[in-house]
Structure formats: C-alpha cells, structure tokens
Simulated assay, not measured.
Amino acid sequence: MRARIPARFDFPKLWAASAVSNIGDGVTMAAGPLLVAHLTQNPVWVAGAVFAQQLPWLLFALVSGAYVDRVDRRRLVVVVNVVRGLALAGLAAAIATGVVTIPIVYATFFLLGLGETVADTAAAALLPAVVPSDKLPAANAKLMATFTINNQFVAKPLGAWLFATSTALPFAFDAATFLLAAGLLARLSTGPGKREPAHTSLGKDIVEGVRWLKNHRVLRTLAITMCAANVVFCGAFAVFVLYVRQRLGLDDLGYGLLLTTFAIGGLAGAAAAPGLQRKIPARMLLRAGLVVEILTHLTLAASTRWPIVAGVLVVFGVHTMVWGGIVLTIRQRTVPEGLFGRVTSVHLLLDFGGAAIGSLLGGLFAKSLGITAPYWIAAGVMVLISVAAWRPLRAA
C-alpha cells in the first residue's frame, strides 16, 4: 500500500521549494544564453550550451530513474540541490574573476543537467506521495502556475536585468535559490524509502521500467510524440537568442521580456487546464496542441515583427501547460508507485533526449542555412509528427 504523508503538512513545503528553485532556474535560463552569446557569436557554440545541459538525459536518465526507486527521494533531491548550488557558485566566481571560458560554462551546465536527471524524476515521484489521487490535477495546476509565474514571468526579465547589472550576479542568485530549496525540502516528513530489494540489479530495474511504458499504449504514444516534437522545437529555440537579435532586432533586455510571453500563456493555461480536462476529452486537447506547435513554428519562420512573435508565443504557452498537465496526471494516476521513478525516467529520457538532439541540430542548421532555417524545418516535421500521432492519440 502506498505510504501517505499528510498533504496539509508537506505539500506547502514542496510547493515553496518548487517556487524558489523555479525563480533561480528561470534566471539562469535567461542569463545562460546571454553569457555564451557574449563569449561567442557562433550559433553552434551557442546551441552547444543548451546541448551540454540536456546531454545527461541521454546518458544517465534510465540509471537515475532506477536509483530514484531505490532510495529516499526527499534526501536525494536535497543532496542534488546542494551540489547544483555549489556548481553555480563556482561558475559565478569564474565569471567574477574573469577566467570563465566556453568549456567552463559547458561543464557547469552538464553538471546541472546531470542533477536534473535525478532531481526532476524524484520530485515528480514525491507529489503522489503527499497528494491524494483525486487532488493531483489541482496540485499539478498549482505547481505549473507557480512555475509559469516564477520561472518564466518573473525570472526571465530578472535574469536579463541581473546579467546587465553584473554578468556573475544571475548565477550567484541561482546558486542561492538551490540552497534555499534544499533547506525547505529537508523539512519534509520522511518520504518513501527504499523501493527495491537489495539483490535486484539496476539492469533489471531499468528493463522493467522500459517494458512497462512500452506496453502502455497512451503513455507510449505521448512519450514518442513529445520526443519527436522536442527534437524540432529545441532545434529552433536553441538559437532563439540569436533569432531575437538578428531577426527581430531586440537587445538583451528585449530578449528577456520576450521570453515572458511564454509565461503569460503558461499562466493562463495552468489556470484553465483543470477545467478544460473536465469538460473536453483529452484526445481533443492533445490534438489541438499539435496544431498549435505547427502554427508557432510557421509564424516564427515567416515573421520579422516582435509583437506577432510575442502573440504566438502566448498561445504556445497555453498549449504547453495544458499538454503537460494531461500527460503528468495520466502518468501519476497510472504508473505503480514502485515503478514511478523508472517509468518517468524513460519518459524524460525520450523528452529531454529529443531536446538534446534538437539543440545540436538547430545550431548546425542555423549556421549553414540561416537563422530561420530551424523554424521552417520544425514546421514541416511537426506536420509529419501530427499525422503519425493523430490516430493513436484517440486512445487518450
């Protein structure tokens, strides 16, 4: 039987830790590309910084998921947050002393990505342990709304402003948020402990998680669809900072402000998601999301006016919250407790693995074919993805 931790005690702590870390993540998400763009104008190197943070998902996601099902998830997230905070503090020190280089940035982002493979999987598994099943959509909506407000609406312009004030400041700020989030999570009640018998091998654990996802038609379809969609999405947005400068003519602060359009749509999507899921079949919402992705890439490829780009990114933000809420709730309600970390890690491997591959390809396409090439390619590929996924999504 699943161990229950009273939600009235632990969900506010989990929520607060998420709120704090989301601000820091958003600050680094805005400042990171600016830092690399100040060190080099080569699109391949700029996209490479994104790839460095996503590469660990390709290398370690399945192993991380197996460990998440074996150990105390709360303690695991606390330790990982402390390590990530120290890594960012080291990057801030390197910037402040003038010794920062592209390899140092890549190494730091790789370490952050490695921590994500563990922390994100463990954090996703913590929520069903503190919130009853019937309350999961509302709890997910609260976390998504907090993510949208803090990570995208508040943090993006804040990150750009902090970077303009001092290039080291946003990374020092993020380091502090990781440490604060670790302190909040350390106060959670003792969460679920060891999941697997000591004699069980990691290889067998991983295979079991892969097999479970493979045999679940809806989650398998969603995972494969998002993997393919992320290849083209991240291929396009890995060079977004250069697109904003060269195509739209905005400065660093304008780039930070444009990123907040995701947040405006995301906040609306998070607020609307529970009601939409009650009134509209999931298959219709998921299919509508595929259409939104196609139109987003087409608009960005064709437009040179930032207000038009901002408008379509608002709509895209709504789509991401609705789609993400549906997928997360299905997974939390369907996957057995003892398998949750492993199944989630397979899903995230496909999700972030596609993102990593796309980030690498996006820089190459932008360098050889022009800054809008990744967006044209993304639109065409998304049409093919939508055709392939349309019928299987009926099962959702």
Rank of each mutant, 00 (worst) to 15 (best):
L127M: 12
N81T: 05
T334C: 10
L364D: 06
G362I: 10
Q277D: 03
A17Q: 00
K13L: 13
Y255N: 03
G363A: 09
K279S: 12
L184C: 00
L384G: 08
V71R: 08
A123H: 08
A198D: 14
F51D: 02
L393A: 03
P33C: 08
N81E: 10
L384T: 12
L34D: 02
A223R: 07
A61C: 05
A92M: 07
L257K: 07
A168Q: 08
I224Q: 10
A272Y: 01
A379P: 05
L180S: 01
F173T: 06
P12F: 00
A61S: 15
W45C: 01
A107L: 13
L179H: 06
A164L: 15
A176D: 01
P12C: 03
L384D: 03
V239H: 02
D252G: 06
V99T: 15
F110G: 01
Q246C: 04
D252V: 09
G353E: 06
P307I: 03
L257I: 12
N230T: 10
E208C: 06
A93D: 09
K13V: 08
G159Y: 01
R331T: 10
A373N: 09
F262V: 08
L162H: 02
L88Q: 03
A272D: 00
Y243K: 07
G370K: 08
V383D: 10
